[in-house]
Nucleic acid binder design. Sequence first.
DNA 1: TTGAAAGCGCTAACAC
DNA 2: GTGTTAGCGCTTTCAA
Lengths: 355, 355
Amino acid sequence: MATMHDVARLAQVSVSTVSYVLTGTRPISQATRDKVLAAMAELDYQPNAMARGLASRRSRILGLLMPMDERGLGATETAFVTGAAAAASSAGYHLVLSPVGGGDLDDLRRLASQRMLDGVVLMEVQLADERVTVLQETGVPLVLIGRTADTSTLSYVDIDFDQTVREAVAHLVGLGHRRIVYVNHSAATLASGYGPALRTRDAFVAAMTGHGLDPVMIAAEDSAAGGRAALAAAFARAPELTAVLAMNETAIFGILGELTGRGLSVPGDVSVVSMVTSPQVAELATPALTAMTSPGSALGRIAIEALVRHLDGPAVERHLDGPAVERHQQLLPCALEVRGSTAPPRSRRPVGADQ
Amino acid sequence: MATMHDVARLAQVSVSTVSYVLTGTRPISQATRDKVLAAMAELDYQPNAMARGLASRRSRILGLLMPMDERGLGATETAFVTGAAAAASSAGYHLVLSPVGGGDLDDLRRLASQRMLDGVVLMEVQLADERVTVLQETGVPLVLIGRTADTSTLSYVDIDFDQTVREAVAHLVGLGHRRIVYVNHSAATLASGYGPALRTRDAFVAAMTGHGLDPVMIAAEDSAAGGRAALAAAFARAPELTAVLAMNETAIFGILGELTGRGLSVPGDVSVVSMVTSPQVAELATPALTAMTSPGSALGRIAIEALVRHLDGPAVERHLDGPAVERHQQLLPCALEVRGSTAPPRSRRPVGADQ
DNA sequence: TTGAAAGCGCTAACAC
DNA sequence: GTGTTAGCGCTTTCAA
């Protein structure tokens, strides 16, 4: 493995010159640059990332910390990751994903304190999230996907759940639905402080109330069985329901199965809208689901861009906690994609503009 | 950020002593160790990973290279990742996932050449995979998940597709099915040299032939629509089919939908077995799918263990390509998990032991 | 426009 | 059982 010294010797220049053509930190004459480049090519030189990192105190590596305790990454998360990776790469950074489980807080602290990561994006943030605290203590530049309860000192990008729910409800109401049931994640998930579940719940109540309708919410376990149970509960609570809005990507298959099992057709008897769902999953169902499509890759891109802006920005007071530190806080709504699972309810026509 | 020097000064010992209590590379008296540990705690010392890596020429980081071009990680891949992460962690390594797209071969080469990764696990290997070549050229220790066509010089862990298909077919045949259609990935995927698709195809032909049955294979696009089309094609090719064996986790939802659409019940009229599927996905369907469950986390664990054994093993001739380099080559079968989607065909009873 | 040299924070001989 | 010290391969002053 050739080193910079080898390159310098072959090109008949000093090591610093080689370093400067690599970093572009100071002007180099074309002739010298060519010599150096030729030498590099000849030796198949690759800079040693460790040495570079040690000397420059920057690894040029960004970490994407994602919990993997659950049922895997959906297409949504995947889009997120690829968006982030692309943004990192075009900013000259590597992106590595670190599968941090919930338990290993120490592991997380170590990872962040070892100066191996220039910055970190944390996914699946809870309203009260110890990981955020740990990360803040270590001083690594940090951007969240999702939000903690108190966001005053943090940078984050998140889905605009309020807007998303409002649009979904408006779609159904526009079709003429009045009895709409919201199927959320499980009670346990809600209790654990999972932001999306909590925020969509509140947004649903607000949206329905705004339309003068009664908000009915059911919690469902993340499984097909949970979805079936939730649908049964929904009919118990609101026998005349004509539409289901589901936040739970897993339960929704159970909901559809149970609907079919009860001899009810989608969207003839009951309309179904899936929230924060990828097109891939929406297309899996029969009929394909009308869904609110998450802005996955944009979220990833924006998070990384915010992080990079911070890192590559003026080196001033990067470690001062003064109010001068710029935070990036942004919400992106999901987009309504109408497919085959929504239609006007059987018993009534779409409401008119003046109604 | 405290350095080793600070710790040494506070503990009144030399830096090397601090280093040795950290690495455990030579005996240290209990008294000294305690002093050092106390100093570390007091200063909240964290070793600098870059410096350590530069000096020791080992980053203690393992890379898991996974293509993310597609529809996301299923529960299978997730189990894989968590298995790998756990194994790495308990061997004292960090595991980072790198989302390498198909295109960036140069990016891959750079990543591997920069001495940032002590070893690499490559997922989703194709029969002819340029990435393997690139990686081998860089000289990083490498373990594959999946296999290239020529495995003579490589370490790998893979699913035993032969055995898995044989068991799946045996299950159906045991129930009395004779007309079994195999729904594979798309023709394009097959043409691209995707090992699992190719290997299961061959295994299916072998297994069916072994039972004296006619092997019918249909290629399906990876979508619900693809599944529906495949089922139509299957009925065209084999009108009297009573069972479907599906390799395509995405298409299977279309298959089920189309079956229902034709007024056919599962498993009453047609039995369905899903290959290389996670329990989570299998439970999504109604009825829950009988499936061959992939040994996800075991695969991940074994791959990492093989890599670590290589890295931590005798430092002898690690860069020699002599025949002394031990390769790890192992196949693991999927396990049959019977759920609600398989039953004896309507028209006949299970075959007896002597039949 | 270029070179010399002092580190970055650690590991691992080598010495005792 | 412990200390000294020469690097690891690079970046970045300082000096020309």
